[in-house]
Design a protein around this nucleic acid. Structure first.
Lengths: 147, 147
DNA sequence: CTACATGCAAAAGATTTGCTTTGCG
DNA sequence: CGCAAAGCAAATCTTTTGCATGTAG
């Protein structure tokens, strides 16, 4: 899926809910669509500000919260504690592997794990509504062994 | 493993590092060992304060950070954003299912998922060093289950 | 027009830190 | 005793909110 399609689907989503189409919301949607990584609010504000510096930090906060409620972006909270975001549409659902040596994030998906998660929730008497899976790992092939 | 054994292994861990054995650290260790759930710092301070109210909040903050560095407790960051803790020793490894309607946390373990995680990391060229898996779910039907 | 959205600054909540005092080793 | 640790309050950092103003529909 193309970037501008992601951007448009975000815009479509909030307009469908009867929410107003402001230039601030368009910029945040555009910024998210152009971000291949997982920016936090401050970083989003910086990137959005590069397009139009008049956008305020509080608007970015309000906007990501709104986009999340509308269901078009996902909120993450990796080990650093800060909230990080990525569009949920335009990309298949995936989980994250974090390279502990570099901080690089690799996305992956496993049907098998998805299935098991639903099965576990079910067995515990619940219906799965969401999940978070993060793998922390180091590159193979380094002879470093722990003694 | 018994509660007082957990408490003692925490104490042993920081004393081995040459760190001082203060009554504040003993109380926090004891409180953690007695907590079957995942208290945040404020809650830990409340529970520790029940044993001796002279302990300060900043000391609890410094102590959990220290215990985490020493490796005897685990820090979690569920969706509410606040840091929550549990002893890493004395309990088998497990993951968490969070009841989105009540905030209740159910612990579970799946060998199958553990195995798949290692396999996925391997396939991506990594060696798994840690992971985090959280399921967010709501009770099936209307009856609330207790575990 | 007018209700909803933004900007700004102030507030709030969580966590950290500077500095003085306390007490473990 | 000396230095690590605690207490307290002030500082930080992230996120939220009250209120006056702006603007999309």
């Amino acid at each position: 899926m193309q970037k501008d399609t992601v951007e448009n689907s975000i815009r479509a989503a909030y307009r469908e809910k009867g929410l107003r189409d402001t230039w601030q919301r368009r910029i945040v949607a555009q910024t998210l669509a152009q971000s291949p990584d997982h920016p936090d609010v401050d970083e989003l504000h910086r990137r959005a500000g590069a397009i139009d510096s008049r956008i305020s930090l509080s608007t970015v906060y309000r906007t990501v919260k709104l986009f999340e409620e509308v269901g078009v972006i996902e909120r993450h909270a990796f080990r650093d504690g800060k909230a990080r975001f990525e569009p949920s549409q335009g990309r298949a659902h995936h989980d994250h592997l974090i390279d502990v040596t570099t901080g690089r994030i690799v996305e992956f998906r496993s049907e098998e794990i998805e299935r098991l998660q639903a099965e576990i929730a079910d067995r515990l008497g619940y219906r799965l509504t969401g999940h978070r899976l993060e793998l922390y790992a180091e590159p193979k092939g380094r002879a470093e062994k722990k003694i």
